[in-house]
Design a protein around this nucleic acid. Structure first.
Lengths: 241, 241
DNA sequence: CGACTCATTGATTTAGCTCAAGTCTGGTGG
DNA sequence: CCACCAGACTTGAGCTAAATCAATGAGTCG
């Protein structure tokens, strides 16, 4: 079987060099795998998790439940920790749900803390990954707060494509998107109906094609220019951290 | 002169116990103070800061510049680090601007990193403060994505009051808000004109009074209920972290 | 087949935007 | 001391992007 930590190692390796020993330490973490069906709750709101969870396969989302409806505040792909912050926050301020059938691994908090102690550089990289989550959230705030539905959706497509490419899950001109239009609405702060019309509009403008769960574009650059997409916030540069 | 680190120590002390030695280590950090006028840029977008900055007095905001206008993705009050993440992110994905005249202290990254090494528990608390920023951003996404202008503004008032109270800058029934209505629009993803009408509406509903920069309410609970405000995300509980 | 869930489209409504004009304030200079 | 000016606030009128409501396909699974 493939190493479950592989996508996480891949994601870190894009941002900094890992020593062989560090890679080994990550693979040696006692990880408990579990499958979830689309729609299932992975971590509950207001709970106190004793473990941190990592997406191995599929996608999941962080859900803040407001009185007027749910908002998906972040989308996670393989290699992303979905609640690493619970190591410090203790009490969840949101829930995590499966947005597709997915496989999630979890590691007891004690082992994560131990890893940080024994490998301070890995500790910094775990900190880094929570801080990149924050950068993505800032971009999401700007996206929802300032851009039109058309640009919002285009921006999300650019981001997803870029993030999936990092872990080898995107082709040069597209990717597989398993979200329903209702999910997309909850991610973008739009109604499901309007998401549908917005996809149609993007298609009419020949910026992309979207049939079933296949998203394809002829030129990523056109889409990125239209969406005002600047990938700086994804921190894809290798730097000593 | 008052210790510049005092509001930061106060903010951490709400979340966990600090030893006398840890407090001393924080006060011993070489901090360089600088004043900024309202509107001045404190940290530039796409720069590589060599220091991390902390608000000592006044308020500032993190600004993501989109093609259609600026979005303020976070508001910071005394005791908040505005770019602690730059220790790991290296390149800024947004700028930081003064939203009122303010005093900001900055500490070289090397000293912050050294502090984390010598005092692992303080390191975890610095990590914690970046992670609380993330929690606040999630709440902002839900606020902008799902709530009406009226609730959005009410929610912001609840959050600001709660955060200012922690550092002793709020009275039980109100606080001083130095933002212009244009700033509020950029925080909430609304136009300045609509912010004006929304404030008027909140006044008519007797949820608060807002004259000059004094925000006052008769019952915080009424406002919080109206705004669907749940302070869990602010992590104001003392926990061993 | 029948009961889902998801996607699609039309008709209508509405929250919030834009444009425009005015007021009120504090600061500056003659 | 007062005229002027720049920012910020306020209000009105009209417009528009997106929401809501409603109906209908289309695919899937027990």
């Amino acid at each position: 079987m493939r190493e479950p930590m592989q996508p996480f190692v891949a994601a870190l390796s894009v941002r900094d060099d890992l020593s062989a020993e560090e890679v080994r330490a990550l693979h040696d973490l006692p990880i408990h795998l579990r499958s979830f069906q689309r729609g299932e709750e992975i971590v509950g709101d207001h709970t106190r998790p004793g473990r941190s969870s990592l997406v191995i396969d599929g996608t999941c989302g962080r859900v803040v439940q407001a009185r007027e409806g749910r908002q998906i505040t972040a989308v996670h792909v393989p290699g992303d920790f979905v609640d690493l912050h619970s190591l410090l926050l203790k009490v969840m301020d949101h829930s995590v749900v499966a947005l597709s059938d997915c496989v999630v691994g979890s590691v007891p908090h004690g082992h994560v803390a131990g890893l940080c102690e024994r490998h301070p550089h890995l500790g910094r990289l775990l900190w880094l990954s929570t801080v990149i989550d924050g950068a993505i959230q800032r971009s999401t705030i700007a996206n929802i707060g300032r851009r039109s539905a058309l640009q919002r959706l285009a921006h999300l497509v650019c981001e997803l494509h870029t993030r999936l490419a990092v872990i080898g899950l995107a082709s040069p001109n597209g990717f597989t998107c398993s979200f329903t239009q209702t999910d997309l609405g909850d991610i973008l702060g739009l109604s499901a109906v309007h998401v549908n019309r917005t996809i149609r509009d993007l298609r009419h403008r020949k910026l992309l094609s979207w049939s079933g769960n296949q998203v394809l574009f002829s030129r990523f650059e056109s889409l990125a220019a239209f969406a005002d997409f600047d990938p700086t916030y994804l921190n894809l540069q290798k730097e000593p951290r």
